[in-house]
Structure formats: C-alpha cells, structure tokens
Design a protein around this nucleic acid. Structure first.
Lengths: 147, 147
DNA sequence: TTTATTTAGTTGACAATGTCAACCATTAAT
DNA sequence: ATTAATGGTTGACATTGTCAACTAAATAAA
C-alpha cells in the first residue's frame, strides 16, 4: 500500500522534471538572445551575491568544472566585467570582483530575468502567482531539509 | 502593495529556478553515466509514450532543432533502437518506432530514472514525498492552465 | 492546373559548451 | 622535510547544439 503511494510520487516527480526541464530550457533560450550565456549570467550572479568570491566557491555552488570555469572567468575578465586578483590570504587562490561595468551589466541581466518571470506571471492571477511561489518554496525546503 | 507581493513572488520563483536547474543538472549528470545521453533518453521516452510518432512531433514536444533531431534519430537507428520508415499517409514524413531492443533499453533507462528519484526520496519521509509530488502537480497545473 | 507556399526531413559547416588529464604553485598534513 | 591536498591554468578533445541551404512532397492560391 505504502509502495503504491511511493510509486505514484515518483511518477509525478518525473513528470514534473520533464515539464520543468522544458520550461527552464525555454526561459534560458530566450535568455540567450542576450550577449551573455546562461552560465556567464549565473557566474555574475554568484559574484554579485557574494561581493567578492573565489573561483573554487563558484565551482562548488555551481557544480561546474574548474577548467571550464577558469576559461569563462578569463573571458569575463577580457570583457572587463570582472577583476581577478590574487587572494591576500591564499597565494594560490584568486579573488573575483565585479567591475563597475560588470555590476551594470549584471543589473541589466537581472532586470531582464525579472521581466521574463514577470511576463510569465501576466497570464496568472496574483493569488495564483503567490501560490506558485509558495509551492516552490515548499519544494525547495523539503528537498533541502529532507524528511 | 500588490506590487510588493508580485516582486516577492518573482524573487522566489527565480530562486527556485536556480535551485531546480542545479538539481536537474545533477540528476542528468548522473544519468549521463549511462550509454545514452539525456536527449536520447527523452526521445526514446517520446517514442515509447506515443507508440509511433513522427519526427516533427518529437520536435514540437521537445523544442529541439530539426537538424539536431535528424542526426540523433540517425544515430538511434544505427544503434538499432528505433526504426524509421516512410509514413503511409505522408510521403514527406517518417514514422518512428522502437525496436524490441529499443524497448528493452528504454525500460532499463526508465528503471534507472525511477531508481534515481527513489534514492532521492530515501532521505524524505513518505508523507513529505507525497507533499512534494503534490506541490509539483500544483505548479504544473498553475503554469499550464494559468490563472 | 500550373505556380507559389508551406511542411518534413537531411546534410554541411560551424559555434558553443563541456570534459579530461597533465601541469605549476602554494598550503596543509604527517 | 616530505607527502598530500587545494586552487587554478592550459592543451586537446568530445559532445552538444545551431544555421543556412537543399530535396521532395503536400497544400494553397492564381
């Protein structure tokens, strides 16, 4: 009996994963029309969020390969969106910060992203939007905190 | 006042998107340890799900480029997982079916994918698992049906 | 009914994205 | 003092995805 419920849950979760993978894919595609790729945008987010950050921290939070990240950071540096400088506390590490240009570009990206979600919510009533958000919080909570 | 609520909802949704993009990414990475890529698995799913299907339908449901799809199908055909034959009703179109091997491989993939979710649910109580699934259904419903 | 137009799929050429292993320098552990 | 682990870079490569041009058939328009 218990087992049947579990199977049903698994099926529903898989269905959701298919659905949401698609949705995120569509959102990202649209996002890509911008000059920066999704990963780049996400890196800018991580830097902005932290103020200053090490590459290894970005690696950990984004689950991204270090060689890949290294190159992306190099590119962002060339585009003058970030500064990479040796960490004062660890000579192996680098400290990454947004330049003013980087902050400005991130702000644009951020607003684009907000607008995208805002557009999505246009089709949905304010009450349902609120519900949507709270379902999402609930999922995050359950998956992060467990039991 | 209304506006503040909306902004809060947008922020929560974006947070969820980051979180869930990562989660799906991790699940897919694990999935990749198999011999088929995620997209290939998904194509097999679409074919299995429909019984027989046209390439254009897969294109539509997966939002995938037609040239890309054409190549993937060619590969799957070479691996003898699918049959491509001219559609009886439309000479431009092809009709795609799973071979027995394809069905068997899909079944394995399917079980792997189920197991993956099942493992994820190990850390979560049955009640919470059920809640999780229902939050997901609710999200899908709201996003699909709107208001 | 001949002439567009659209639809279905394929192919070539290429760009973007991501991975693996080897490597250097530094720090931490034994 | 030596070894192991960490942080990052680079070369070489594989996978994944995109774009435009093209053929053949079906549909619409003249």
């Amino acid at each position: 009996m218990q087992d049947k419920q579990k199977k049903a849950a698994i099926q529903q979760i898989r269905k959701f994963n298919r659905f949401y993978t698609d949705l995120i894919g569509l959102l990202n595609q649209h996002f890509l029309s911008s000059t920066y790729s999704l990963v780049e945008g996400r890196i800018l987010f991580e830097i902005s969020n932290a103020g200053s950050i090490q590459a290894s921290q970005i690696m950990a939070s984004m689950h991204i390969d270090k060689s890949y990240l290294s190159r992306l950071l190099k590119k962002l540096e060339m585009e003058q969106l970030i500064i990479r400088r040796p960490s004062p506390t660890d000579a192996r590490a680098i400290e990454i910060l947004l330049t003013e240009k980087g902050q400005a570009e991130f702000e644009i990206l951020n607003q684009k992203s907000e607008k995208q979600i805002s557009d999505l919510l246009e089709k949905i009533s304010p009450e349902k939007s609120k519900e949507l958000a709270s379902h999402m919080s609930a999922i995050t909570y359950i998956l992060k905190e467990g039991h």
